[in-house]
């Protein structure tokens, strides 16, 4: 097909806006459409939906009592506590960072900005176990700060601080990544107007910027939280697998599974799966909300 013919045709089509569409030329056969829909659902069912359903079936295989018995276990509770504790530190830490980074990047021009944005994404490029390994190299017994920490009786690796640090690393870009493009798009006009009316920096941020980014921020927080609670590889490396001390929920699932304690393993896994489904539901709701607000603001 010659390019000139294509552009000529486009010109004609533009000239006659009401020209009828060529029937059937840009649509596929009906049976082909149904094949596409069928293949899409079948693919998703085989790799995702059936396995997800199996988690709940296996967890309830021996009835509700056995299911709840899985949580009548101090190790399960200590894993849940550590998971919540980790997320309660990692998420706010990355939110503060995400807000600071997106403010600096979106509201100001400076040299090295692209480098900075690339560096923020760096943790995504690092494999989970390597994310754990780098903290072992810093704080482990043979690590840079290992001897100093040991002489001061501070333990980071094989203890809760290591779990928290590895989790912060793995979820590092999630909030910043949601905020930076949005704030870059919004520009600085509204903030400059507020500043010219005498608003202070903090006031401008709280009254002008925050309402503009609240949905994207929430989106980032939910994703960050889900990843923080579900991280496995990085946490596994720094935890040292001390039951009741450094086991998070995903690690607890693994140890139960390796002990052939299947009902309990699937019960704890089902709790994490529910977290994932809830995350998805909130995320989808927020996404629709964002789209609607975007459409509303586009229409005068």
């Amino acid at each position: 097909m010659g390019p000139s013919a294509a552009s000529a045709h486009r010109g004609i089509a533009a000239g006659h806006a009401a020209a009828p569409r060529l029937q059937g030329t840009t649509a596929d056969a009906r049976w082909l459409e149904w094949l596409f829909i069928g293949v899409s659902w079948a693919f998703l069912a085989l790799v995702l939906l059936v396995p997800l359903g199996a988690v709940f079936c296996e967890a309830l295989r021996e009835g509700l009592r056995a299911y709840f018995d899985a949580f009548d276990d101090p190790y399960a509770w200590s894993a849940i506590r550590l998971t919540l504790f980790t997320a309660a530190i990692a998420v706010p830490a990355n939110v503060v960072f995400g807000l600071a980074a997106s403010w600096a990047i979106a509201k100001f021009e400076f040299r090295g900005k692209t480098v900075l944005i690339t560096l923020i994404d760096l943790p995504f490029a690092v494999a989970p176990v390597v994310s754990g390994l780098i903290y072992v190299l810093l704080f482990g017994m043979t690590g840079w700060f290992g001897p100093w920490l040991a002489s001061h009786d501070i333990q980071i690796i094989f203890a809760a601080p290591g779990v928290v640090l590895a989790t912060i690393f793995v979820t590092f870009p999630l909030v910043a990544r949601e905020l930076i493009p949005l704030m870059q798009e919004q520009g600085t006009d509204e903030e400059e107007a507020a500043a010219s009316l005498g608003a202070g920096g903090w006031q401008t941020f709280r009254r002008v910027t925050l309402p503009n980014i609240k949905w994207a921020l929430m989106y980032g927080v939910i994703l960050c939280n889900a990843r923080a609670m579900g991280e496995f590889g990085a946490v596994s490396v720094v935890s040292g697998h001390l039951r009741g001390k450094t086991h998070t929920m995903p690690l607890h699932v693994e140890s139960l599974y390796n002990e052939y304690n299947f009902v309990a393993a699937f019960a704890v896994a089902s709790l994490l799966a529910m977290l994932a489904v809830a995350t998805l539901a909130v995320k989808t709701a927020v996404q629709w909300r964002m789209q609607r607000e975007l459409q509303d603001s586009a229409e005068p």
Binding site: P51, L223, F232
Partner: peptide
Amino acid sequence: FAMPTAVSGIAL
């Protein structure tokens, strides 16, 4: 994206 990898593994 939202599912912990351990859950994906145990489910499969």
